[in-house]
Amino acid sequence: MSFASPTTTHLAAERRGPGLLRGAMLVLVKDLRIEASSRVVTNQVIPFAGIVLLMFAFAVDPARQSLQGMAPGLFWIAVVLAAVLAVSRATAVENENGARDALRLSGLDPAAVFLGKVAAVAIQLVLLEVVLVIGVVVLYGFPIVAPGLLPASAAAPTVATAAAGVLYATLAGAIRSRETLLPLLALPVLAPVVLGAARAWSAAGEHSMGEAWRWVQLLTIFAAVLVAFGVATYSGLLEEA
């Protein structure tokens, strides 16, 4: 880009529309608006995650000791399952009425579209996680021993889940069998997220802060790589169809 003369840069900037962050912000606001009017996450996905928590408790030995120990793992499985549903729904909206083409022709940088969508999904996931944390504390008796570490260790897995979800939902985009294909594609990629996040929380629960911190670092690396991958490949994925 540095080789281009001022005039060309100017023209290109005009053609490309808003910058990366502003574009991402626009997409983020758009997606949150859609959610605000459709209420799919609040009225369907969060209740689904709640019933999943209940079902886990029915399925395992309801002795408090074992549920308490399993709480971090069950929590993250519920989050990932709900996330797959939420992302699938968000993409379905995008595929109706040619919205995808409109997005593609809007002049927004595809990377900005990706980042905006990831941010929107992440925000919805945070909402979901808050509700579920209350669920595991109340239903499973999960002790909150490190109130500071909990959100810190939830950030990276949330971003990683959102990034993988958006990436694969776009891959499976206009495909008719998306609902069944998306979990098959996304869950193996999210397996390390579930493992790492659950271990981080367990370690925090046992006051092993050093270990918990190491897991948070691993998760951060994973999230960074997934986001970078999405930014690099999203233009190709959005241009198709």
Binding site: M1, A4, A12, A111, A228, V231, A232
Partner: peptide, 18 residues
């Protein structure tokens, strides 16, 4: 223009992986 942009991002991806 677009291509160079994409290429730069692939390098960023490689850098982050490394």
């Amino acid at each position: 223009m677009h291509l160079r942009h994409g290429l730069a991002r692939w390098w960023v991806l490689l850098g982050i992986c490394a």
